[in-house]
């Protein structure tokens, strides 16, 4: 690995200053499970001279819930803290679908949803789940903070609209009413330790046997994690039924624009979008009906 400098700021302000002073050559690091590997192999997309360890900043370690503000997950909160959190388990248990399958146990000791989002891999296992939950990111920069829906963050493979001088602080998940259920599933050839060939995050709210809201988001089938608005919208107002879910799955499949690579052919991935959307929606429906 080439030489790097290491900084460990204690405040958001100090971190932002380090980032903005570096002229684009600094990268924030949470668990480092992607960044360290990218630096080691000399990935040209991550040409950092300075690594800014953001794990000592209080806001980035926040994990809190209130019914009015919803759930806030700091950008550095490790996966194991997410699936070990009582509030997550009571109110946002579907987030565990992602938290328990990012890497293995050891990776979950370091990796965070925030890092997963900033890494912006098309296959990022937490991103479609966050999108399906309607999550909003808080980003700090030299001129203050801004809030951006998660579905708008990723702009290309390993590219985000977070500036070189900006820092992802936290992700907020609005409270869900009764009748809400969500699910993230991915397809991998092994049962763990794998990159999604395709992944689907889905959420639904059901009242009186009808969908009142729904979201479907895909992983690994486009340059970025994808919110398929039309798939969710197709369900709203419909009675819960196999046909409605199949229709949404068809729309998800149609929206997928995968490539063929070592993980799967484009056709296979499109096919999986159908299968996984159906399965994710069915689980989300079960959870919604169990919750109401």
């Amino acid at each position: 690995m080439k030489w790097i400098d290491f900084e460990k700021p204690k405040t958001v302000e100090d971190a932002v200053k380090l980032l903005s002073d570096s002229g684009g050559n600094a990268r924030p690091m949470a668990g480092g499970t992607d960044l360290i590997v990218q630096l080691r192999v000399g990935d040209p997309r991550v040409n950092a001279d300075v690594v800014v360890d953001i794990k000592s900043i209080p806001e980035l370690n926040e994990l809190s819930y209130s019914s009015s503000k919803g759930l806030t997950i700091g950008a550095a909160v490790e996966c194991y803290k997410i699936y070990g959190d009582a509030n997550v388990n009571s109110h946002f248990s579907a987030l565990n679908d992602s938290a328990t399958l990012i890497g293995g146990t050891q990776i979950q000791g370091r990796a965070s949803f925030g890092g997963n989002l900033c890494n912006a891999a098309p296959s990022g296992d937490s991103i479609p789940n966050m999108i399906a939950h309607g999550a909003v990111a808080t980003i700090a920069g030299p001129s203050g903070t801004r809030e951006v829906p998660v579905e708008d963050i990723c702009t290309g493979p390993r590219q985000t609209l977070i500036g070189d001088d900006e820092l992802l602080v936290s992700i907020n998940f609005p409270s869900n009413g009764s009748g809400f259920g969500a699910n993230y599933i991915r397809f991998i050839p092994r049962n763990e330790m794998d990159i999604a060939v395709a992944g689907v995050g889905a959420s639904v709210t059901i009242e009186d046997g009808k969908f009142t809201s729904a979201k479907v988001s895909l992983a690994s089938v486009a340059p970025t994690p994808l919110l398929v608005k039309e798939a969710g919208e197709s369900l709203v107002g419909e009675t819960v039924s196999e046909e409605a879910i199949q229709n949404a799955a068809n729309l998800a499949k149609a929206a997928a624009k995968p490539i063929s690579d070592m993980r799967g052919t484009a056709d296979y991935r499109k096919h999986l979008c159908d299968v996984l959307t159906r399965r994710a929606l069915n689980t989300a429906v079960e959870r919604a009906q169990g919750a109401s």
Partner: peptide
């Protein structure tokens, strides 16, 4: 094991 959690030490910087 670092502070009660297992991690892969190849993905931790020594300075951390």
């Amino acid at each position: 094991n670092i502070d009660g959690r297992i991690v892969t030490s190849c993905l931790v910087l020594g300075v951390e």
